[in-house]
Design a protein around this nucleic acid. Sequence first.
DNA 1: TGGCTGACTTTCG
DNA 2: ACGAAAGCCAGCC
Length: 110
Amino acid sequence: MKSANFFNDVYEVVRLVPKGRVTTYGAIAAYLGSKGSARMVGWAMNNAHSYNDVPAHRVVNRVGLLTGKHHFAGPNRMQELLEKEGIEVVNDKIAGFKERFWDPSAELAL
DNA sequence: TGGCTGACTTTCG
DNA sequence: ACGAAAGCCAGCC
């Protein structure tokens, strides 16, 4: 198990996302570099069900749209979790996404 | 080993 | 402005 080194990196970054903030698949992929494409990040999230500390609901597509909400326990579970953290969600998308956007390459920029 | 998959992103029409 | 297609790369069968 956990042969997937790439997945582990994705989960680690997602866990680092501050509460009340969101990030994108592309941002994570860019932070990881050549390790994988944006699709791989989304696919990694699919595997995230095996983990219990991966806030996948904080990960959205580049426009702040909750594309992965369908993969949650409930279709509105993702939005509910986001609103619970103080993130306003309208029409399945993050309100003021630009302000809520958390870029690992910028915040972690080491 | 080889080929399909995927919760994205970008570009052409 | 909207729609469709290609690119991307590691994991899984």
